[in-house]
């Protein structure tokens, strides 16, 4: 089922009774996925990566994302998909993945817990090649005002916003959400145009968090080892269009990053890669 249809189904499901109270004990898997080079090129172009036959660190996320949605759109999923906010993301690459390798992708949900502002849940993806784990992803979503049966999941990872001069200024164009939606399949209406975004309480469309995360780590392409962990906290939504600044700072053998509004200096993203 196409992601758009899944969103539609989830939107309908959100108002229907019968939602589950706990996480479904379910894992969705796809085996032997191969990366389409044309798609990889489109993704690299939108996110600012150079095109090589090695996958960008953030690329497997778009392979796992449809599976996440499929899981979250299911009636039994305890939180309604529309309105879920991506608040944090953690990627661990164990080694470089070549574009031709057949990838097995498994996605499940875990850590359904209370959050000061509602309830949060992690969608965990694991990518392996012939049984060898090559990539792990953990996306944390928040349902504002939602409730969770289990207790507090604990503090989000501590990350301070990096201060200092900008390494780069990005003029983030207004069609960035549509462009990333086209390569990621994340057609959440809050990213697509101002009208649909307004329906969800945003003054304008906002950039995908994972686009911002990808664009930031792309700026360090060539300076991050193949095996690395990329932790991201999403802060204020990045309204489209915007001028934002990327700040990079070497730290503990890796890098601290932040993306902030050029005018207000409000942080959109804080991250570490090491």
């Amino acid at each position: 089922m196409a992601l758009g249809a899944l969103y539609a189904k989830a939107a309908v499901g959100a108002v229907l009774p019968g939602r589950g109270k706990t996480l479904p004990d379910r894992e969705i898997a796809r085996e032997g996925l191969t990366v389409d080079l044309g798609h990889l090129a489109d993704y690299a172009r939108v996110c600012g990566f150079a095109l090589t036959d090695t996958l960008p660190m953030t690329y497997p996320h778009v392979l796992a994302f449809p599976l996440q949605v499929e899981l979250m759109a299911c009636r039994a999923f305890p939180l309604p998909l529309p309105g879920l906010v991506h608040v944090a993301n953690r990627i661990t690459a164990h080694r470089a993945i070549r574009a031709g390798e057949p990838l097995d992708v498994r996605v499940r949900a875990e850590r359904f817990a209370a959050h000061p502002k509602g309830a949060q849940v992690d969608l965990v993806a694991a990518v392996s090649v012939a049984g060898e784990p090559v990539w792990d992803g953990r996306s944390t979503y928040l349902a504002r005002g939602g409730s969770a049966p289990t207790g507090f999941a604990g503090e989000m990872p501590e990350m301070s916003d990096v201060d200092g001069p900008a390494s780069a200024v990005w003029r983030v164009e207004k069609d960035t959400g549509r462009r990333y939606a086209a390569v990621s399949g994340d057609v959440n209406p809050i990213h697509l145009n101002p009208l649909t975004a307004r329906a969800f309480g945003f003054p304008r469309a906002i950039a995908h968090g994972m686009w911002t995360a990808a664009r930031a780590v792309a700026a360090l392409q060539g300076r991050v080892p193949d095996a690395a962990t990329y932790e991201v906290l999403f802060r204020k939504p990045l309204l489209l269009p915007s001028a934002v600044e990327l700040v990079t700072q070497p730290a503990r053998g890796g890098w601290n990053l932040s993306v902030r509004n050029r005018r207000t200096s409000a942080a959109h993203l804080a991250a570490q890669v090491h």
């Binding site: 900008a166 780069a168 200024v169 990005w170 003029r171 700026a219």
Partner: peptide
């Protein structure tokens, strides 16, 4: 290309 800043902006820094 990598910083999005004009030369003048760089020079100003």
């Amino acid at each position: 290309p990598r910083t999005g800043l004009s030369m003048g902006e760089h020079a100003a820094i």
